[in-house]
Amino acid sequence: MSPALVLEVQTICKEDELVESHKYHKGVKHLCERGLTKVPRKYILPALERPLLSKKDGATNLKLPIIDLAQLQGPDRIHALESLSKACEEYGFFQLINHGIASESVLEMIQAARKFFELPFEERSKYMSKDQSAPVRYGTSFNQNKDRVFCWRDFIKLNCHPLSDVLPFWPSSPAELRQAVVNYSKGTKSLYLMLAKAILESLGLVETEKNIDENDSCDLLKEFEDGSQLIVANCYPSCPEPDLTLGMPPHSDYGFLTLLLPDEEVKGLQIQHEGRWVTVEPIPNSFVVNVGDHLEIFSNGKYRSVLHRVLVNPSKSRISIASLHSLPFNSMIRPSPKLVNDANPRRYKDTDFATFIQYMASHEHKNKNFLESRRLSQLGDA
């Protein structure tokens, strides 16, 4: 074959790949709506990265530590703080009960998200954007511009702070979505602030209720009150070959805390615990809360973000709602000076959201690779 002909064939192949890849940028829901009996090659993971769905592995379920918000707010707060600290250290996850958010607000949020994903593709696609800082963004996979293999997920991300600025950009259809997200975001933000204060206490950064210095506490919590919030509704359509792909690959969350409302009827969340992938058993009327990369940095490694992933289901679609919280977008995240000493030297570089977004735009998000990029090669060497 002549060099000119080889070049022509290579060019045609690359063009075909681009056309094929662009088709998947429209999302899994779009593919499924057009009829799908097999998982397309773009979604098939290498053999060693696929989930093991044998009966033996499927039976490996995990009941996470339970934190009772009522106990955290009651006379036994010190004991509850000890349980919270242990959960953050040993699991990086816990289930929160008695959270106080009205069941109507939770149900309305789930129903509004489900209705959004049921809209025609032409309506959903209005919110597709490559701008990761956009006030609203509809997309697929994890990072559809960089992912080598796409994951079986579509999402709608809504920036929730400040609400008055971002609300006009949110979808106006379905009609109930905006109000449902406003109510839900206010409830989860209040819940997050209670947990953030408890975490600061558990780390010894503010005094417990009995001896608290209100000025100290207010100064430290002010930045959390002004912090970022992102509501992400995830849709994982039923998958004809769930053993070949994942709803989300192994990853850690980049923020401070994530409050996840899991699908109570369709399990799928797995965390890596003691070297194994285990399926989380959701408790009705609870949140699954996990430590993010920013909290690992802030705690100087005392509390660790943990790898988690999402399985897909062969017969049922799955909806989950994540509320991701951290410090303000322009804040610098660094280890708390009170947690750095000779015995526990500084372990991470300073970071901010701009650094994270820049990293995400140029790298495939995999495992804890962003956090690893912020880890100091020599402890104590900033």
Rank of each mutant, 00 (worst) to 15 (best):
P75R: 08
L191G: 12
V39C: 05
P284E: 13
D154N: 02
M128F: 14
L81W: 08
V291G: 00
T355R: 13
T140W: 11
G100S: 03
I67F: 11
A4N: 07
R347K: 15
C235D: 02
F169L: 08
D57C: 09
L260Q: 01
L45E: 14
Y127F: 15
N143P: 02
V340Y: 12
A343V: 07
G204L: 05
P162Y: 05
A175R: 11
H273W: 02
P168V: 06
A180M: 02
Q10Y: 00
S238N: 05
V340I: 15
L376V: 12
G35Q: 03
D131I: 14
L371C: 01
K14Y: 00
K126E: 14
N145K: 14
H161V: 01
L167F: 03
T60N: 11
L193W: 07
D216L: 14
S228E: 12
P120H: 04
L119P: 01
G35P: 04
S217F: 08
N341E: 13
C13K: 10
N313L: 09
I199N: 01
V340P: 06
L195K: 04
I357S: 13
P3F: 13
N98M: 05
G187D: 04
F287T: 03
H294F: 00
S315D: 09
E33Y: 00
D216T: 12
P3N: 06
K23V: 11
M248E: 06
S331K: 04
D57T: 11
A59G: 05
R318W: 07
P262F: 00
H25T: 14
T60H: 10
A361P: 02
N285M: 00
N159H: 12
C160G: 05
T279R: 04
D226M: 07
Q179P: 01
F287N: 00
F94R: 05
N183P: 01
Y359H: 15
K146E: 12
D263Q: 02
N183A: 14
V310E: 09
V280L: 07
L158S: 09
F356V: 03
Y91W: 15
M1G: 13
V266N: 00
D68I: 09
V19R: 12
E118D: 12
E20T: 04
L163Y: 03
C235M: 06
E281R: 09
E364T: 10
K42A: 15
D293V: 07
G92S: 05
T208A: 09
A361W: 07
I212A: 12
K316R: 14
E33W: 04
S173T: 13
C32I: 02
K38A: 12
T258L: 05
N61I: 14
M194P: 06
L62Q: 12
Q229K: 11
K130L: 13
R41L: 10
L307C: 01
I156W: 06
